[in-house]
Structures are given as structure tokens and as C-alpha cells.
Amino acid sequence: MSDFNTETRTEGDIVIIKTSGYLNNVGGEQVSEVCYKEMDAGKKLFLLDLEDSKVVNSIGVSILIEIIEKLQDVDGRLGYYNLAPIVEKTFNIMGLTKYSTVFQSEEEALEGMS
């Protein structure tokens, strides 16, 4: 059983979710729960700090596609930073980078999402 955790904070209108652990189906569901709760509260801009999630699988990443779809309905956006190279490559192969943005640092991400 993998340990997956999230820590959530806000910077202005942007919700930052820092994950730790294996982003599989369980991890993906945890991230989506946080996002949907914040979306219900009116938030539309989300950043995932994936520094401590260096291992993912396609099921977990598929849940991020679901989040992108729901954000599109409210003109929201999803971005990421601190990605391991293989995670960024996986996002590229699956096409997530067409509909969400990979940033190189938190500073760049906050500027890019504002």
C-alpha cells in the first residue's frame, strides 16, 4: 500500500497542491478530491508541486486529464512544477502539456498562472 499525501495552500487566487508519494489511482483520486473541493469554493487556478512524486503511472495521470476537463468547463487552468524528467516525458507522451503547463520553478509557475 503506497503512502500518498497532499498539502494545500493558496497564493492569491492560485491553489498549490504539493504531493508526496506514488501518483497512481489512489494518489490521483486524492488530488482530484482536493481540486474539486476547491473548485466548488470558486477556485479555478491550480498548481501541482510534484517534487516528491517522482513515480507516476498512467492511471494516476489519467485522473489529471479528468481534472483538466473539469477546469476547461469553468475556464480554469492547471499547471505543474518540480517534475522529474520521466514525469514530464510521460505528460508529453499523453498530451497533457497541450492543455496544461509545465513550469520549471514555483516562481515561474506563479507568474505564468497569474
Partner: peptide, 11 residues
């Protein structure tokens, strides 16, 4: 990704 965004089956 385009089809997946419109589908219920994301996997």
C-alpha cells in the same frame, strides 16, 4: 488527449 478529454474513459 483530445478524445480522452471528451470521453468518460480517460485510461
Amino acid at each position: 488527449i483530445e478524445e480522452k478529454l471528451e470521453s468518460d474513459h480517460k485510461r
